[in-house]
Structures are given as structure tokens and as C-alpha cells.
Design a protein around this nucleic acid. Sequence first.
RNA 1: UGGGGCGUGGUCCAACCGGUAGGACACCGCACUGUUAAUGCGGAUGGUGUAGGUUCGAAUCCUACCGCCCCAGCCA
Length: 433
Amino acid sequence: MPVVSIQDVGQYDGQEVTLRGWLYNLRESGKLLFPIFRDGTGTIQGVVSLKDQPAAFEALRGLTQESSVIVTGRIHADKRAPGGFEIQITAIEVVQRVPDETPYPIQLKEHGVDFLLDRRHLWIRTPRQAAILRIRAQAVRAAHEYMDSQGYILTEAPIFTPAACEGTTTLFEVQYIDDQKAYLTQSGQLYVEATAMALGKVYTFGPTFRAEKSKTRRHLTEFWMLEPEAAYAHLEDMMVLGEGLVSHIVQSVVKNRPRELETVGRDVTKLANVKAPFPRITYDEAVKILQERGNSAKWGDDFGGDEETILSSTYDRPVMVHRYPTALKAFYMQPDALRPELALGFDMLAPEGYGEIIGGGERIADYDLLVKRLRESNLPEEAFGWYLDLRRYGSVPHAGFGLGLERTVAWICGTEHIREVIPFPRMLYRVYP
RNA sequence: UGGGGCGUGGUCCAACCGGUAGGACACCGCACUGUUAAUGCGGAUGGUGUAGGUUCGAAUCCUACCGCCCCAGCCA
């Protein structure tokens, strides 16, 4: 008897199989029971009658939601069944029955956000949440595929770091051994610059932490970032890499996770156009577009949520805005040789108001300029000694960017809030469960 | 941190100008051989975030605190 996953039952039409999973819901109609089982790969309706299978009927009748079960029966296509296939149950083994006095708390009806987040460890069992996490996994896999195909080597950055890379106000401080202090990384960028000088083209993928007091649908205090960095690369190279990477991620999810996209209710036609090349506009042009649309943006302003939404809603795919004023960007950003008031950086804005999914650009290669910028930013020079070494020993032009995984997945899934796209979201005022 | 909103049975909500806190779902029982968050009938349990104040009387009005949501800033 083959043990199969629910996602594969279509290949077993007419055959008897065993499924291992949980009871998701149970409907009754007279001497018929219609249980719905889930196993993490999908859901399937079962059917059992008292007359034909009295033992299985009795075992299933009154069974509590989320009890774990091993089900044996014949798969057959039936238009009346949700999903097109159902299993005609011949035997059922209850692995653990959820006690009647402590029923499963998450019902099929609506719940509030706080209630669900307090039970996130159970909420992820619901089909929509499971589908989102499967899409996330596919996005990660596609990202690795693409970086590998472009000759980039995965190198890991440390999570304990001695200092900030963009300023100290948003760092989580931790006590290290004895009286030492360390901080949780807010970006692997400085380290990936070092490994780029060692290996040429590299990227890092890992968790990053920001103690920002941000309470919006686009922020987490712990999120995952993919950061490529390449020696001898320039701004243009990174914009090409960024659009190629995002195109590949989106198209891979569309191709390999159609069922999950349907489960989350995503309009897939909006993802179909997401193919390189993406539109590019300069910061100057962006300001002009905003002013034409009646926005009050002036040259020198950074863009907020409203501005990003106006810009991104102009296009059917992500848009890249490049050459921002130097004053708006991090200390390590290379100024444009032709217009030093502009930095050779770019942001990629996702459509439909999902905001910035990529930020990056060319780094300062010159030792003296980097020291000057460090001092202007009031950063502790001694903590950056190793970083300055990179400009002392064979410094070359180099560039990179950071891709926010959760924002990218939230956009692909069309979720209202970023908290749904990571298994256990860490937010301002929430570290449980 | 600022602005706005909200805290009522296990869950989701209602209760107008202060006057007996109610419904749906969930749960239990019965009926039903094709249900689609099944349906119909019946039943039991159980609640006003916390602390004060005003009042004959507070879920409702006032004050403080606690918690949550949304928006803004910052960012990915």
C-alpha cells in the first residue's frame, strides 16, 4: 500500500493508498461522513458511510479537529469533492485524539490578528498560512538557483557584530562573553565586501535585526536578507543582477507553486509581466513625476510610503530608482563622478504598494574618502579598522545590494501584512511564541 | 515616538440619549446517503481589560494605567 502526499493523489486515481496527516474539518450528512484531511502538502476530502465501512465510520464520528490520523482508502476523481479528488475511506487509525475538554482553538471562522499571532505555532497549520510558507521556500530556492547560475558564491556573514554598518540607534545590543558587548547584525554588507575581495562574486543570505520602532505592515525586527557583492562591479551591473534575480524568483514561484498562489488568492496575471528588464528612473526624474502627480516632494527629500506608492503604481513591474542625493544614503555609498551630490545607489520598488524590496549600489573604494565619510557620520573608526583594510590592500570598485525576502514574498503572495510570510514573526512588542 | 481607532462568553460581534448584557459560531443531543465554513430542530456552559470617579443606577460618561490595531517617521 503506497503512502502518498495529498499533493500527489492525482497520480493514484483508482488506487488504494495511505495518507498520514490531521483532521482539518468534519461534515456529517446522515449516515455519511465527509472529513477533510490535511498533511502539509494540501487538503483532501474523504468520504465514509456507516453501511459500507462501519468500523471506520465509528472511529471518525465525533473526532475532534486536528486529531492526527492515518487514513487508508481508494482515491477517485469526483467533481463533487473540493479539489477534484476524494478518498473513499476503508480504514482509519487515530494516532492522537485531541481531547474534548481542550479543543483546537483555531476555528474555520474568522479570528482577530492578536488571537492568531498568540497561536502562531498552530495558525501555520491552516491552508493559507502553509501555502505562504511553501511559496517562501520556493522563493528562497529560486534565489539560490539564480545567484548560483550567475557565478556568485554563498558566503556567510556573522550575526554577532562589533558595530553598526549604518548607525547605532537601531541595533540590538547583546551581552557577549564576560563584559564585552556585541550587536546583532543589521546587514551582512560589510562582511560580504570582504568576501567579495577574496572570492570575486559572492552573496550572503541570513537573518538581520533592526531595533526600529516601526509599526507598519512592512516591518519586522528580524527579517531575512539576500546580499550580493561583486568586485569590479558598478551600479549598472547591480541593477541588471537585481532585475534578473527578482524576475527569476517571481517566475519560479508562478511556475512551481500555482496551487499555493491559488490558495492565497493571488491574481497571477499581475505576476506574469514581472520579467526583466524593469523600468529605471533617476531620482531627478522621480521627483518630477511626483510633482506632476501633485505630490509635494522636493529635490533632496527622501521618499516615504506615499511617494513609493505613486511611483510604483505607474508600472506593471518593479521600478528601479537610481542616483539619490548622497546626503540621503549610507556613508559607504560611492558618489557619482559627474555629479558628486548624487550617490551611485538604487532602490527597487515593488508594485502595488509593497515598498522597497532592494536597496544597494556602488561602494566607496577610496581609503581617504571612506574615512572622511565615516567621521562625518560620527561612526567609531576603531570598529571599522578591518573594513578600512579592504581599501588599503588592493581596493577596487565594487557594488552590491540587499534584497528583503519578506517584502518580496509578501508582494508575490499579495498579503496585507508582512507578518504572515515568516513562520514566527518578530515585531515591535511581539516575541511570542 | 506622534496621530487616529478599539478592548463585551472559547471565538467573532450587538446593546441608540446611562435603566433586566444579547446574537452568531464553536460544544453536546436528535434528524438527514453527496456534504462544500453542510443544514434543520433542541440543549448546556459562559462575559463587559485594570484601578478609581460621577450617578439612585455605568458595557455606555470622566481620569489614569495596561493591551491590541491602523497610519506616519525610519528602513529591506
